[in-house]
Write a protein that binds this DNA or RNA. Structure first.
Lengths: 332, 332
DNA sequence: TATCAGGAATGAAACGATTCATTCATTGGG
DNA sequence: CCCAATGAATGAATCGTTTCATTCCTGATA
């Protein structure tokens, strides 16, 4: 008899195990006198409820899985805070893990979460295919997509309108007079990248009359490092170099501006830069970053809420907003 | 019969449940022919192992809990990546949650983790008291302290030498000629704050001869917001204002420099600023931040490693390094 | 051929909380 | 005074896996 269990508590309190269980679960039919007796016993033996046993019997755990691409991306962490906030009103809690943008790791973690019988999963998909997610949905674990949409819709989703956000950014640059613009996009097979590319293309297309030139690069991740590398490549390959750069997220923008500055370029004088997300630091950079704002906390909150709400498949879309700061100016 | 279990697999494969279990757990005594047969059956029925049942029987889960003060602090997220990296070599995984620097939430989460029979907990304590942690250690769940030390030592720990790091920073400022220095520290009851304060004090004391003046403010969190607020207060209350500020972490430094700039102060001309941590963004700020570097990834990695290693209580200390950048200069 | 050793396979018991059909106690009405 | 009705408490069965003592096989040896 290692750790005290419900039986030990019951014996000490002189009640049945059923009663102890009822006390633990706040079942309202228990006499106040007994509640007190049981609680005293619990405190005395140092009882801690065995979550595994509970989950086994109940069939479902009180956890919600959250799978993000990168723990170091403030976008996801802001959202995670939103999730936590929503969950804190229930007795659920968050299981947070990073897929490191790897499809295999994502599949692995999804199985792990499924095996733990989580109430559901909030997923920011690593690749184009939702096969792994579809599978666990089929088997009964609900999934809410984060910043992505399933077609056909077998799972709920929350997202911002990436395309229109990207279009906003491009319109801004085009409006300032830029005609040679680079787009440092994220990995090609990520949903967000595709949507943002769409938005960029429509913005360019709509600008019809005056010929605007677009150079698109797909980076291998949404990180500062990738942004820096992308910028290096851009400066080496493109002559004349672009006068403005739209980055698929703020971290890429930070990396890009870092490299640009190292190469002696001045922002925004020599080069305008626009980001995406509006992470807290965007306004603190050497030059406060013009960027497309996403309501990250809310996004996470609603995603969790949709999961808790249950069965209905629903899609919630938030509208992004352009935050013009100092990293953009007309071309010199 | 809802979800297929081990029995269903056994029936289909024509073997016993014990054999299926052995296959799942890679017990080497199983015939290759049977392994294949079982795996085929597993794939066919879409079997997913029930982690709750496993944990119930085994008595311990294959998860490691990680409790940090703030998900939005890159310091912890870098460390979390280190933890994940270390854990990925075993079949363990990380359960990451934020205490939001609240002692109550910390206690709550510790109990939650204990109830889930985690292999152990990596804890960055929210307050001065380790009572809650001690309790679960007593009951058999190992805890490794993250950036903090228990006295008497009932749990292992990893940390950097906060005091000497802080001393490094102060020496730097004093060496530059600053004589009126403010210290924007974190919450008073957090271990790191206390240690960094110690370092600051010894540095000042050692500077004996010339009278150096120190103004210390304890903020209520290690965040950008708190840093900004602290700076506002500092500028309002202190006349003449300090010529240099040492911040207990980079986020505070970012917040402080943000406010300073809003008030028309130039960094480092009017005000020198030093941070602590050296998060990735420190070098990307409007003025690259002079800061005390901590090996965050390694810190997390070693913490996880100590936990996996088991019983021995051990303390590992890393040495911080000063990274001089552009946010510091002699007073004008 | 009979026996034995050793490895491989078996399946019942156990893990600890929850559930729910049953039992027990109490109260009020006829 | 008995019965019914209501509410509280009980405890055996259950969830799905792992464990391990036992059984089964196979091939080698005497």
């Amino acid at each position: 008899m290692n750790r005290p269990g419900i039986k030990d508590v019951a014996k000490l309190a002189g009640v049945s195990v059923g009663t102890v269980s009822n006390v633990i679960n706040n079942v309202p039919t228990v006499t106040p006198e007994r509640i007190e007796r049981v609680n005293a016993a619990i405190a005395q033996v140092g009882y801690v409820r065995n979550a595994a046993a509970k989950t086994l019997r109940r069939g479902v755990a009180s956890a919600v899985g959250v799978l993000v691409l990168d723990l170091n991306n403030p976008f996801f962490m802001e959202a995670a805070e939103g999730v936590t906030d929503c969950l804190s009103q229930t007795e659920s809690f968050m299981l947070l893990a990073s897929t490191q943008a790897s499809v295999e790791k994502e599949a692995e973690l999804l199985t792990l979460l499924e095996s733990h019988a989580v109430r559901g999963v909030l997923l920011s998909p690593a690749g184009a295919s939702l096969a792994a997610a579809e599978e666990i949905v089929q088997r009964g674990t609900p999934v809410v997509l984060f910043d992505s949409i399933a077609t056909p819709p077998t799972m709920s989703s929350v997202s911002v309108d990436d395309a229109s956000g990207a279009a906003l950014a491009m319109q801004h640059l085009l409006g300032l007079g830029h005609r040679r613009i680079a787009f440092l996009n994220g990995p090609e097979d990520v949903h967000q990248s595709q949507q943002r590319k769409r938005g960029v293309d429509t913005a360019i297309a709509r600008w019809s009359g005056k010929e605007a030139q677009l150079i698109t690069h797909n980076l291998d991740s949404y990180t500062i490092r990738a942004g820096a590398a992308g910028m290096t490549k851009l400066l080496a390959e493109q002559h004349p170099r672009p006068t403005a750069i739209f980055c698929a997220n703020d971290l890429i923008a930070i990396g890009a501006s870092m490299t640009a500055r190292e190469q002696g370029l001045r922002i925004p004088d020599d080069l305008s830069i626009v980001g995406f997300d509006d992470i807290a630091l965007a306004s603190q950079l050497s030059v406060p970053l013009t960027t497309v704002h996403q309501p990250m906390f809310q996004l996470g909150w609603r995603a969790a809420n949709l999961l808790l709400e249950g069965a209905i498949v629903r899609h919630e879309t938030f509208s992004p907003e352009l935050r013009v700061r100092r990293s953009t100016a007309p071309p010199s």
